[in-house]
Amino acid sequence: MRITQGTFSYLPDFTDDEITKQIEYCLENGWPLSIEFTDDPHPRNIYWEMWGLPMFDLADAAGVLMEVNACRKAHPDCYVKLNAYDASLGRQTTALSFIVQRPEPEPGFRLDRQEDHDRVIRYTTRAYVVDRPTGERYRGESNGS
């Protein structure tokens, strides 16, 4: 099941050229970019691991893309996303955020129904991959393919 989150979740995944254009747009607006990665695909997992610090003082998209590729290389079996921060409001505001790498395949989520009092049903989504410890979650599949 394809995870969709962030600004362009309704679009097919971007190519590097398209990513570069988005980065250019962010830099033109003065938004520093940061890279984050995770292997826990749950939608409520908002704290992804940071790949280095946010990249301030950059003038050109090539520098960001270089880091994106470094992160992809180091974590080929993780989700990687790019965030752009707009500091003009005086606090950290995410102006743009989109996934630039996804592991393959994405097994998706199991829906648990818990019956509670008075016929109340509580729902829990649970990614299949989190049954395995972090770091091994997508490894088997991606190596096999």
Partner: peptide, 24 residues
């Protein structure tokens, strides 16, 4: 959320790290 058929028609899993469009 749990509907596996809702995937994108343009090949949703195509963006693996060895996609050919990506310059290394």
């Amino acid at each position: 959320m749990s509907d596996p058929k809702k995937s994108d028609p343009n090949g949703p899993y195509s963006d693996s790290s060895d996609a050919p469009a990506r310059p290394s």
